[in-house]
Design a protein around this nucleic acid. Sequence first.
DNA 1: CGTCACTTTGAAAGCTTTCAATAGGAGTGG
DNA 2: CCACTCCTATTGAAAGCTTTCAAAGTGACG
Lengths: 240, 240
Amino acid sequence: MFMYSQSTASPAGGATARPKLKDLFDGQRPEAFSPGEAIFWEGDEARQIFDVLEGVLRMCKVLPDGRRAIVGFIYPGEMLGLSFHDHYLFTAEAVIDVKVRRIPRVRFFALVNESPVVQPLLIAHLCDEMSAAQDQMLLLGRKSAEERVVSFLLAVHRKSAIDDHIVLPMSRLDMADYLGLTAETVSRTMTSLCRRGLIRTVRRGGVALRKRAALGEIADGAAEAAVSRRALVRRAVWPD
Amino acid sequence: MFMYSQSTASPAGGATARPKLKDLFDGQRPEAFSPGEAIFWEGDEARQIFDVLEGVLRMCKVLPDGRRAIVGFIYPGEMLGLSFHDHYLFTAEAVIDVKVRRIPRVRFFALVNESPVVQPLLIAHLCDEMSAAQDQMLLLGRKSAEERVVSFLLAVHRKSAIDDHIVLPMSRLDMADYLGLTAETVSRTMTSLCRRGLIRTVRRGGVALRKRAALGEIADGAAEAAVSRRALVRRAVWPD
DNA sequence: CGTCACTTTGAAAGCTTTCAATAGGAGTGG
DNA sequence: CCACTCCTATTGAAAGCTTTCAAAGTGACG
């Protein structure tokens, strides 16, 4: 069945015969950004679209009084500044050293439009982003601090798996602003997971996931997983 | 400048000369759903795409232990089941009496593909959804209960404005599951807003927005708006 | 080796939730 | 037309999870 979804596409790696969205950036010179540097600011006129070659970026939105939310992290192979309007809706900053390629937005969409092959790719990309966004809404709206942190660890694992080790290049504060928590709560939760042998933290943001099954149950809020957790067993029952 | 964004398009109403995504549904027979009825379930094979003619729908995701999050409400003129994968990622239910038209997903995308005119419309639609999702992440991650409720009231106002009156067709529980709160907290917040003369509730979900300016400041977390609110004044300052 | 920023840890406070009970409204049946 | 029932909304009080405020610990860097 015809489907607009990258996640159902063939596994990564292997032959690159079929075109990819990233190909649109071919020939562009890579640019480097240092940790903390902004690639663009919320409110800037959205003239460019970026392809991330190396590093990790954060997408931030800020309230007038300074509260910050990170609406996503971007890893190599992903695109930035794509799915939005005439002005950027968030600030993009480098979490660690970053290399990106850019092309003008007009050119990007011109290329997309003249190629019936890549157009579905763009739509697929947007669909994947949308689905991640909805998962995040569930996380932010209904998960406990521990569930959020574990969900995050597993998500990072999915994005950048090296066996059962992951690297968290961002600060606790970044994680907190992404998970709707405070840095202290994230720190406490990580400590707790360590003490229980579920994870093991290494230096420089390294984390070893010890018990994937248990972590998975915590992340998805398995009814039996937690003991002293908010009991929110509320069934949504609707009339027949 | 060329832009993929509906929100920058010409004002609604007026001439319908240019094609619209909804046109793809022309000729389809409308179907009716009663309150609480599901149009499709999370996990169902995603075979259809829907155009909402009348009523309001909710998109729900549920955790294994029953906790529910509503990832969005859908109003007339919007589409449903669009931006997703081979299986629906949420359950769609009627909040009130609903009329929809449907077409097979395959057919929808075939039509989109053969028309270079509507393809940008689809992308624009996805971009708008994405931008709303990011606003919601900011709301869920960083706003107080009152800010969430007020943001919601103003968002409903934007979607379905009748002067300064709005109608909330959904229950307090629906609102709560959308805002990451409980029904009690939503109720208490509404009562508080009433007592302060910011809104006025009428029967059957009617709400009159009294002081739009004040409400706007509350929703956006204006630094001066609230008095006894969490003081989260944390500036995101990055090195130059 | 001192500085600076980030992380961790502790203790108290707070906002929202939970639990419980009282209204309120709509629809039904007598 | 009114009584009755059911479900939702509202309100109260106590509990809890996360936050806030503070301070100590850790690591990178010059």
